[in-house]
Design a protein around this nucleic acid. Structure first.
Length: 425
RNA sequence: GGAGAGGUGGCUGAGCGGUCGAAAGCGCUCCCCUGCUAAGGGAGUAUACCCCCCAACGGGGUAUCGAGGGUUCGAAUCCCUCCCUCUCCGCCA
């Protein structure tokens, strides 16, 4: 949610941002400004009437106290029309407020100047590549063949027990995931992130706070009976952790890291995208969340990105970083990087992290503020990034570290957690 | 799930139909006094929004005492619904 004052002062910029993001109806900005105008005038009218009413009530109180009942009764006679008038105004006010909010929620975040303008993933900017992309050997198999053969991941039983996209991880690969989670959490801890275990279900207010509602509610699993949503990412509970709070002076920046499973409905996915570990309905992820001073948000994005990249470097997995173009970056972000690892067997890139700056967009929705140097409250800025999402990292390890006999070398940094150097067939 | 108690400002806690956005204490900020390890005095100290020029300073107004609705000229105070917390019982990793 953007600041209406900002929209008023930067109308063209907001509209241009919408067009660049591929939003169909930039004219809702004009609608919003119109409604806002009406709303403000209605606020004024309503407040004036309420003031009148309050003054009268106060006067009546005073007269009653002094025993001047007749005079009081005289004033009461004239209050009935006033009451009706107020009620009428309040209804209109409520309507306008609702309309205003609705329009406001439909206006996306404005892309930063450094973001390339574009329509689709074709237009994303290749920001960085790291590592050498080895040619796949003839015996090297895609991860889904290897894990099936070795009995390390059971997609069929997952489908039987729950449904497609809910695999079982078995034995060494289950342990590999646990090792990765431990490794990621420990590393983040060393970088000053506070580890936090979050609820796996959130209520509607939280989903709205981070912007899953109203934009992307179809991505979430829902528990209607209890009015809860299964989290699609730890971003949702963790960012909402401080919802409706004012962070004391000197407390920023706040860094959090959380490991959670994530649930996504991924409606409409098919084909090679959903092979093996490429896309699942349930997966594990370590998520990083930052709450920062507005002035430092873009620096914080760079350090977030660098940190996520460092994890892949330590695992010695080749990757590339993309700076997402306006059309491919989503409603709530102002700037976003994607990290992708190379799957040699599939000859394609797999996204394992997405690092985003949301500016004040999420924070304003959830009234997440801080006390600035002038002792005023100010909306803070939020960022998050995966550090990292597990399945595709596992897929990359299984393919890159695969040996001819079907064994898999354990990356150095994970060996202490695995207690072995090689996963034997 | 059953029975009871309760939800007030950063915290503790009063108020139970009018002068209450809310006593008092604690905490915090600023000032004064005092040279000594601690104390005294004074002032200030919720949030959002609207208006006064969408600037600062300042001023005016409205709303908010868990949430929503109702009664009333007037509600933190009365009534209804919901949510949450605590205690006891039940169940349970």
């Amino acid at each position: 949610m953007l600041d209406v004052t900002y929209i008023r002062d930067n109308t063209e910029r907001v509209k241009e941002g919408m067009r660049n993001k591929g939003e169909d109806h930039p004219e809702i900005v004009d609608q919003l400004l119109e409604v806002d105008e009406k709303w403000r005038s209605m606020v004024k009218q309503t407040d004036d009437l309420r003031n009148d009413s309050n003054m009268k009530a106060q006067k009546i109180g005073r007269l009653m106290g002094e025993g001047r009942k007749e005079e009081a009764r005289e004033i009461i006679k004239h209050t009935s029309t006033l009451k009706e008038e107020i009620k009428e105004k309040e209804e209109q006010l409520e309507f306008l407020k609702e309309q205003r909010k609705e329009l406001l929620l439909r206006i996306p975040n404005v892309p930063h100047d450094s973001v390339p303008v574009g329509h689709s993933e074709e237009d994303n900017e290749l920001f960085k590549t790291w590592g050498t992309l080895a040619e796949a050997a003839e015996w090297q198999r895609p991860h889904w063949e290897l894990v099936k053969e070795q009995g390390w991941i059971d997609f069929e039983r997952g489908a039987k027990v729950t449904g497609a996209g809910f695999p079982f991880y078995i034995g060494p690969v289950a342990k590999l995931q646990r090792a990765l989670v431990n490794y990621f959490l420990n590393r983040a801890g060393e970088r000053g992130y506070t580890e936090i275990q979050a609820p796996y279900f959130v209520n509607e207010d939280s989903a709205r706070g981070t912007g899953q509602i109203p934009d992307k509610e179809d991505m979430m699993y829902e528990i209607p009976r209890d009015e809860l949503f299964a989290i699609p990412t730890a971003e949702v509970p963790v960012t909402n952790f401080h919802r409706d709070e004012i962070i004391s002076r000197g407390q920023l920046p706040l860094y959090y890291v959380a490991y959670t499973p994530c649930w996504r409905r991924e409606a409409g996915s098919y084909g090679k995208d959903v092979r093996g570990l490429n896309r699942l309905h349930q997966f594990d992820k370590v998520e990083l969340v930052k709450m920062v001073h507005p002035d430092t948000a873009y620096e914080e994005l760079e350090s977030l990105r660098l940190y996520a990249e460092s994890l892949l470097e330590e695992l010695d997995i080749p990757y590339r970083t993309l700076l997402m173009c306006t059309g491919d970056m989503g409603f709530t972000q102002s700037k976003k990087y994607d990290l992708e690892v190379w799957s040699p067997a599939q000859k394609r890139w797999l996204e394992v992290s997405s690092c985003s700056n949301f500016g004040s967009f999420q924070a304003r929705r959830m009234m997440l503020r801080f006390r600035n140097d002038e002792e005023d409250t100010e909306i803070l800025h939020t960022l998050n990034g995966s550090g990292l999402a597990l399945p595709r990292v596992v897929a990359a390890i299984l393919e890159i570290y695969q040996q001819e006999d079907g064994s898999v070398v354990v990356p150095d940094v994970l060996q202490p957690f695995m207690g072995s150097e090689v996963i034997q067939p």
